[in-house]
């Protein structure tokens, strides 16, 4: 057995690292991007998902430690995210308040609150979510450990499909799309813009909080002030990449999760020289994406018409 694992060529180590990274690392991306997708479809931008992520992670850890159950911790994280997003929903409903600035303020505030109340939990070992051993078919421990999957991964995939169905075949989904694409038409139909958008922002916050919970309750599986790699900040870019489609968010999350794993995988395989630069890869990728897909006069395909117009 041992000879098998050491005979594994480094390239496979890197590939497995990336595969594992995709499975583990894509989950926060998936949840924040689905949450932001829902929010943006209704016409609002929430740049504060980083704060939501951090607060969700911290509260999830605290709740799990207090109740002994990781799943309750996940719910707790989601609710924390929802509460923070509620501030965003309220503030941005006031006149002359910028969506973008509010998001950044919330990220600052949410992060601060998370760090402050999270101090006692830094050394804590919370109960973690169960891992589904997708690699059980292999004898190689490396493969087995790389393919351990959290249940939130599958729930997330299901959520992506559910969100797509929601937008297509439910009354509320149509209302959300109308509110985001042409607010005055939605108003003419008697749709309450404030109600729809608030619900979308709150739901987005809940999903972001769940994404954060995954960080502290699965991978890396504890709370500390560096637990986030900026997934919340990248949510907006992910949604652009996904062309505001839920399934697109799935692919975007997988891509980014994989990219984020390249640095650590290479370092683990002994190529540590460019560690920092590889860690910058997801951000650089997002930037490249934004440059490639944006265009001066035209609106991006799929972008809700009322986005960023403050109506």
């Amino acid at each position: 057995m041992t000879t098998d694992s050491t005979a594994l060529a480094p390239i496979w180590g890197v590939m497995l690292g990336i595969a594992g990274g995709v499975i583990r690392g894509s989950v926060p991306f998936l949840y924040v991007s689905l949450g932001e997708c829902l929010t943006q479809k209704s016409g609002k931008i929430n740049l504060g998902l980083e704060g939501v992520l951090l607060l969700g992670a911290m509260v999830a850890c605290a709740t799990a430690v207090a109740t002994g159950s990781a799943w309750i911790g996940v719910i707790g994280g989601g609710l924390a995210g929802l509460s923070l997003a509620a501030i965003h929903a309220w503030l941005t409903s006031l006149p002359r308040v910028s969506d973008v600035a509010t998001g950044i303020a919330l990220a600052t505030f949410g992060g601060g609150v998370a760090f402050y109340f999270g101090k006692p939990y830094i050394a804590a070992r919370p109960p973690v979510l169960p891992s589904l051993p997708l690699g059980a078919w292999s004898d190689l421990p490396l493969v087995q450990s790389a393919l351990r999957t959290s249940p939130l991964f599958f729930i997330g995939i299901a959520l992506a499909f559910a969100l797509r169905w929601f937008f297509r075949s439910t009354r509320w989904g149509l209302h959300v799309r109308a509110a985001g694409d042409q607010p005055q038409s939605a108003r003419a139909l008697g749709i309450s813009l404030g109600g729809v958008r608030t619900a979308a922002i709150l739901a987005g916050g809940f999903l972001g909080g769940v994404g954060g919970a995954h960080l502290s309750l699965y991978f890396p599986g504890n709370w500390n002030e560096g637990v986030s790699s900026g997934q919340g900040w990248m949510a907006v870019a992910l949604v652009i990449f996904a062309r505001w489609q839920p399934l697109g968010c799935l692919w975007a999350a997988i891509l980014f999760g994989g990219t984020m794993a390249i640095g650590p995988s290479l370092q683990a395989a002994g190529y540590g020289g460019y560690y920092h630069l590889f860690n910058a890869l997801p951000y650089a990728l997002t930037i490249a994406l934004m440059i490639a897909t944006c265009s001066k006069n035209q609106r991006l395909a799929g972008q809700p018409g009322g986005l960023g117009k403050g109506e």
Partner: peptide, 11 residues
């Protein structure tokens, strides 16, 4: 029926 259209363009 209005002067300004109330159709949602993306639908």
């Amino acid at each position: 029926v209005y002067q300004h259209f109330t159709l949602v363009p993306a639908m």
